[in-house]
């Protein structure tokens, strides 16, 4: 299986299309969308429709914290995220909202454990951004028969955690486009980066490909028309902060 791993699309249809096109070029035989389809970005309806179509064609789709919030935002938003969720909610029709609300938090497809945040508590939305949290997530996931890969997003950065010579997990920052052997007698946790809202200063959309036969994972960056998304975000009246994030990838 050549698995295309796309996470944190954040209502950015152009970035999604760019990553899908690259994944197809690379011969993806299965797609997985790891949550946060919406939130922050200007075109949630388009993204939800695209992903629904992908799922109908066999893609695996998970729910993230922003999808959860957008499906049922609080009546009185207290944070900018909640206010954003309210805006997203209003952009979606009832069937799109129901679709988001019904998505699963995790999928177990050995050798893969797919989850938006951390496998030990998917609904707690822990940030897997250090070896300790990664260890919790990995330890929980590998209790499942045949699982050796934990694949997620949520942190908007590309990273690979693995067991070194010592007892704690080690963090590896991948080089885009370089295949990394991930043999299955070891256990691996990858955060695949964000399709629609990278935060490492590089505006190119991020995703990853896992080849389970060759036991290789490759992290990718794909340029797309950021300017067009920024213009759309302005036209739709998104808050300045969200527009800048898209523009600067910070």
């Amino acid at each position: 299986m050549r698995l295309g791993l796309l996470s944190d699309i954040h209502a950015n249809p152009l970035a999604l299309q760019a990553c899908l096109a690259r994944a197809r070029e690379l011969g993806a035989t299965q797609l997985a969308l790891l949550g946060d389809l919406v939130g922050y970005g200007p075109d949630p309806a388009a993204v939800v429709d695209q992903i629904r179509a992908l799922q109908a064609a066999g893609a695996w789709v998970l729910r993230g914290n922003h999808d959860t919030l957008a499906a049922a935002p609080p009546a009185e938003p207290r944070t900018t995220d909640e206010a954003g969720a309210r805006w997203t909610h209003d952009q979606l029709d009832a069937s799109q909202r129901d679709y988001l609300a019904a998505l699963p938090l995790q999928l177990i497809r050995p050798p893969c454990f797919l989850v938006h945040a951390s496998a030990d508590a998917p609904a707690a939305w822990r940030y897997v951004n250090n070896p300790l949290v990664a260890a919790d997530s990995l330890a929980h996931a590998v209790r499942e028969e045949g699982v050796c890969y934990v694949l997620g997003g949520h942190v908007h950065l590309q990273a690979l955690y693995y067991q070194g010579r010592g007892s704690t997990l080690m963090l590896f920052e991948p080089v885009p486009g370089k295949a990394i052997p991930v043999p299955q007698h070891r256990r691996w946790l990858a955060t695949v980066g964000s399709v629609g809202q990278p935060r490492d200063g590089n505006r190119a959309a991020a995703f990853a490909m896992l080849d389970t036969q060759a036991a290789q994972i490759t992290f990718h960056r794909v340029p797309y028309d950021v300017g067009a998304m920024v213009a759309l975000a302005r036209r739709k009246g998104l808050p300045q902060e969200a527009v800048q994030r898209l523009e600067r990838a910070r």
């Binding site: 690979l160 693995y162 070194g164 010592g166 704690t168 080690m170 080089v175 370089k178 990394i180 052997p181």
Partner: peptide
């Protein structure tokens, strides 16, 4: 290899 996870790495640095 700078482009691959270092399996021999560890926190305690022996």
């Amino acid at each position: 290899h700078a482009e691959l996870p270092d399996l021999l790495a560890e926190e305690t640095r022996q």
